[in-house]
């Protein structure tokens, strides 16, 4: 059995970052886009907690709590704005929201 080292966690974090970025750029369903944003922020949290454990102090964990708080606020606001839009035009597909361009 290999021990789990910080680099394993960092690899996981990079993977989450890439999945999240791909999700934001490729998916057209806006709810899934918002979920992908959460994935990126979770990649950040994994990074922070890993480094925090590595340095044996708490700075990173405190930073992670702030990141979680911000992520929640952002998701709540995102869904709120999505609902406001949905009342005027019932769709969650990014390519059907096309009033503003060029």
């Amino acid at each position: 059995m290999h021990p789990v080292t910080p680099s394993h966690y960092l690899a996981l974090s990079v993977a989450l970052l890439l999945i999240g970025t791909a999700g934001v750029l490729v998916r057209r369903n806006l709810v899934i886009v918002l979920m992908s944003l959460e994935l990126i922020l979770n990649a950040v949290n994994i990074n922070l907690v890993t480094f925090s454990q590595y340095y044996q102090h708490t700075h990173g964990q405190i930073f992670a709590i702030f990141v979680i708080t911000v992520a929640v606020a952002e998701a709540a606001l995102g869904l709120g704005i999505l609902i406001a839009l949905f009342r005027n035009k019932p769709t969650v597909q990014a390519d059907e929201i096309d009033l503003l361009k060029w």
Partner: peptide, 20 residues
Amino acid sequence: NEAALKYLILGAFSSALLVY
């Protein structure tokens, strides 16, 4: 509504990369 949604998604995306 549309402006806010576009701004929020792109803004949150960029902040997420920034904090990474």
